[in-house]
Each structure stands twice: as structure tokens, then as C-alpha cells.
């Protein structure tokens, strides 16, 4: 890690240059006005200094035209700043559909990172250069923040919900990772390193620890253990082809909405099924809030993502497409899965 003194951070992501240009624009405008005002004041203070104690200067009440000019011009300039800044921000908050996905769990005071292929790491994040990476993050305790200054990105990481952050690393190297939301005693030590490697090195690193089970495999086990297939695909909407599609749902008040089935939707539906119910299906799914940890949720979600059909991303109607989510034959079905008595007849 390069610890030499620097004037400016490195530009190591697709966004960094855009942010820096935006900053330069604001810097230019600010410097212009600051120098203009300071020079004017300095000039006035010297040129109009009191030369004799009794002098009485002319009184000038104001000038309406001037007021209008110096209201309109700053307003116009700030609106330019707003629009430019909004564009950069929206781009920063909108990950591309083909971004590589990595899960992050923050907790006092460390980062646990889970690659979908199975490799896990603590306080470091390996990523390949040149590929879009999307982080799906949650916290196990208080609010943290996953900040990579050289990429110009950060996002608060909250308990109880997912937040996302994405970037395309553009330079091989090592970069600082900081927790950027005060989270208690060792907040200043919740730091790490982002290691950007070229694709070959990344692949080698991924393969480096063969004993790690990919989350989707663990997820499939959970899927069986908790009997999800008992309903999904028969009485309940099939999960095949669900991830990434738009879904017609009813919320708690009975209002009709369309939502995208992303990680946050999947997590919410497992924990709070009553929040968004697929249109046309009764309200029967039990909640698994007390049974699953955040890590297990991530694994389940990874598994559900593998059930997606690669093709069209049209609207999803939860159609009963038959037993699309049957487990592989090698695993025995668990009889009487837990919580099955939740659905007794009333």
C-alpha cells in the first residue's frame, strides 16, 4: 500500500474521473467568486480607508439591478452544479445488469466478504480490473459505511436491510477501504484493502481455497431443509426465472404495485412475506425471521438467483410452471419440514 503523501486521491474507478471533473468545475467557480469577492474587499478596504477622522462618505441605499444580477447568476450556476452532480450520482447509484455480485456483511468491527463462487475474505476485497462489481451489503448490528475513496464511492450499510454500491475498477493496485459511519469503539480499525487484480490473477485467487463452499450450494441445502420446494412451484409462485423480473404484488394495504425481484425483495419476502404478496396467491407463507441468519439469507438468495432463466426479462406472474424447483435427486427430501403446521386449516 502506497503510504506516501498525496495531494489528491488516485483515480481508480470508472466514476473517479467524472467526480474529479465535477469537483474541478465547482472549484473553478468557487475560486472565481471567492477571489473576486476577496480582491474587491481588499481593494475597497485600502482604497476607501479613512483618511481623516471627520470624513463622512456618500450614502448608497442599494441598486435593484445589481441585486437581480447577483441573484440570478448564482442561481443559474448552482442549477448547473445540481444537474451535473445529479447525473453523476444517478450513474453511481445504478449498477449495470451484468455486474458481478459480491455480498458484504459489516459488523463491529470487521467486514466479511462473500464471493458467489465460494471464496470468503475478511477486511479485504479482491476484484478483477475492468469488470463492473456490485456489492450487496447489510450489517449485523449498527450502521456502518463501505467507503473506497480512490473509487469515489461509499454507501451506508444498515442492519435490517440491504444497500448496494457498484464500481468498475480501472487500475490494478491496492486501495484503502474505510468504515465511514461511526459505529462504536473500534470504528477507526474497521478498515481494509481493496485488491484489484487482472482477470487471470483474480481467477487464480478465486480458485485458491477449494474447501470454500459456494453460497449457492449452501443455499440449496437450506432450500431443502426449510421445505421451500414444498410450496414453491405448486401452491406458491415458482421461483424459476423470478430473480431480476418485475413482479405484480399487493402490499399490506391491498394496493397494487409492480416491483423488481432484486436481493432486497427476496430478503423481505423471506422475512416479512405479508409485505408484498404476488397477485393471485393467498397469504400463506410463514415468516422465517427467527430461523435464518443474514449469512443464510444471502446463501438462499444466491441459490434462488441460479434458478433464473437466462432469457427474457418480461413481467413475472408467478405462473405455476410445474415443479421447476425440484431439488437434485441426490439429496433426500425432508419429511414434515419445519413450520408446516403453520398452515393448518382454519
Amino acid at each position: 500500500m502506497d503510504t506516501s503523501f498525496r495531494l489528491f486521491p488516485k483515480e481508480a474507478s470508472q466514476l473517479a474521473a467524472r467526480v474529479d471533473h465535477l469537483v474541478l468545475f465547482l472549484l473553478g467557480v468557487s475560486a472565481f467568486f471567492a477571489i473576486l469577492i476577496f480582491a474587491t474587499i481588499l481593494f475597497f478596504v485600502v482604497y476607501y480607508r479613512r483618511r481623516n477622522p471627520g470624513e463622512r462618505p456618500p450614502q448608497i441605499a442599494g441598486n435593484t439591478l445589481l441585486e437581480i444580477v447577483w441573484t440570478v447568476i448564482p442561481t443559474g450556476l448552482t442549477m448547473v452544479m445540481f444537474v451535473w452532480g445529479a447525473k453523476v450520482f444517478v450513474a453511481a447509484q445504478t449498477p449495470p445488469a451484468d455486474a458481478m455480485e459480491i455480498f458484504v456483511i459489516g459488523k463491529q468491527w470487521m467486514w466479511e466478504i462473500q464471493h458467489p463462487e465460494g471464496r470468503r475474505e475478511i477486511d479485504t476485497l479482491h476484484v478483477p480490473v475492468g469488470r463492473a462489481v456490485k456489492l450487496t451489503m447489510t450489517s449485523l448490528d449498527v450502521i456502518h459505511d463501505f467507503s473506497i475513496p480512490d473509487f469515489r464511492v461509499k454507501q451506508d450499510v444498515r442492519p435490517g436491510s440491504y444497500s448496494t454500491e457498484w464500481f468498475v475498477p480501472t487500475q490494478v493496485g491496492q486501495y484503502r477501504l474505510f468504515c465511514d459511519q461511526y459505529c462504536g469503539a473500534k470504528h477507526a480499525e474497521m478498515i481494509g484493502t481493496v485488491i484489484v487484480c487482472d482477470p487471470a490473477q483474480y481467477a487464480a485467487w478465486l480458485a485458491g481455497a477449494p474447501s470454500d463452499v459456494p453460497p449457492r450450494v449452501a443455499g440449496e441445502k437450506l432450500f431443502l431443509q426449510y421445505g421451500c420446494a414444498t410450496c414453491h412451484g405448486q401452491y406458491a409462485p415458482t421461483l424459476a426465472g423470478l430473480y431480476g423480473r418485475s413482479v405484480d404484488v399487493l402490499d399490506e394495504h391491498g394496493n397494487h404495485r409492480q416491483v423488481i425481484a432484486d436481493e432486497a425483495y427476496l430478503r423481505e419476502s423471506i422475512l416479512y412475506p405479508e409485505a408484498k404478496m404476488v397477485v393471485g396467491y393467498p397469504n400463506r407463507m410463514p415468516s422465517f425471521k427467527s430461523s435464518l441468519s443474514e449469512e443464510q439469507l444471502m446463501q438462499l438468495i444466491e441459490y434462488i438467483k441460479t434458478l433464473s432463466a437466462a432469457a427474457d426479462l418480461g413481467s413475472y406472474h408467478g405462473a405455476n410452471l410445474g415443479p421447476a424447483t425440484q431439488p437434485s435427486e441426490a439429496q433426500p427430501r425432508i419429511e414434515n419440514p419445519p413450520f408446516s403446521d403453520f398452515r393448518t386449516n382454519r
Binding site: 416479512y272 405479508e274 404478496m277 415468516s287 425471521k289
Partner: peptide
């Protein structure tokens, strides 16, 4: 809770 599918503890 049962009517809405909510977790009773929640």
C-alpha cells in the same frame, strides 16, 4: 398474523 402470513413474534 395467520391471516396476513406475518411472523407472530414480529
Amino acid at each position: 398474523a395467520d391471516n396476513t402470513g406475518a411472523n407472530p413474534a414480529t
